[in-house]
Every structure is written in C-alpha cells, then in structure tokens.
C-alpha cells in the first residue's frame, strides 16, 4: 500500500477527513451526523495514515495515545452530565444557553457528544493501530 501516490495523497486525505469528522460531529444535533459517526471518520483517517506511513509515525502524529484520547472522552462525557448537581436535576439533563455570537447554542449536550466522538475515535483508532503494528512486527 506504500505507493508514491497513496503516500502523497494520504496526509491531505487524513487532514480533510479529520476536518470533515469535526464538521459531522458539530452539525449532528440538527442534521444527520453526530459523535459516533464523526469518531468513526476520525478513526478511519488515522487508519489510512497508519497504512501509508506506518504505526510509529501515526502515533507521533497523533500526539496522544489513542486510549488516552478515549479515556479523556469518557471523562468529558461523564462530567458533562454532572451539571445536574448544581441545578438539582437528574444526571445528564441537558442545559442550554443562547449564544448568538458563534451561531449555535452551547450546551452540555454538545460537550457530551464531543466526549462520544473522542471515545469512538480513540478506541477504534487504537484497535486499528494495534492490529497494524502486529502486522509490522511480523
């Protein structure tokens, strides 16, 4: 798979897919999309990068360990539900604030979805990279 064309295209493809995944994530509340799909797209992006440049390069490019990303996402998702502690509502109750400046409303629901995105992206890319690296060892 390490052809010249693929290796040339792969970084752009990865960047584009990551950008697209964030777009899909953020629009998910109103149009088709969301954290699960966005996370899968991000994971695929890393998998493609891994196939093109090998697992060590991908791990360097990712900065964080994929499982750390997943763990952070899980923590964010869980914490986002704790707003109920202050408002006296049940766990994971949505809280919304109007913010006309950035064009969409801010809420802990969006933060929860970002957590989902990070978990799926982290865990799935971890799986893909782990399998790719056993391939390398062989």
């Amino acid at each position: 798979m390490k052809t010249l064309i693929f290796r040339t295209v792969a970084p752009y493809l990865t960047a584009l897919m990551l950008l697209f995944s964030v777009f899909i994530l953020l629009r998910g509340h109103n149009e088709p999309g969301g954290g699960f799909i966005g996370g899968l797209i991000a994971a695929s992006a890393f998998a493609i990068y891994g196939i093109a440049f090998g697992v060590p390069a991908t791990r360097r490019a990712m900065w964080f360990h994929p499982i750390a990303i997943a763990g952070t996402g899980l923590l964010i998702a869980a914490l986002s539900g704790l707003t109920g502690l202050f408002s006296g509502t049940p766990l994971l109750t949505g809280v919304w604030t109007k913010s006309p400046i950035i064009g969409f409303d801010i809420s802990n629901v969006i933060i929860f979805d970002i957590g989902v995105y990070l978990v799926v992206a982290g865990a799935v890319s971890s799986i893909a990279l782990a399998l790719e690296s056993t391939e390398d060892n062989h």
Binding site: N30, L92, D113
Partner: peptide, 23 residues
Amino acid sequence: AHGRNVVNVIIVDFRALDTLGEI
C-alpha cells in the same frame, strides 16, 4: 432538547445514560 435531528437527540440527550454506558 433544542435539536432537529431526532436520532441524535435521543442518543445524546433523551437516552444519554445508555450512551454513556455504551461508549
């Protein structure tokens, strides 16, 4: 829930606890 995509609203808001377990 201030969302127009009903499927996503169910996942991240109405049934968010399930989703938390799933992730």
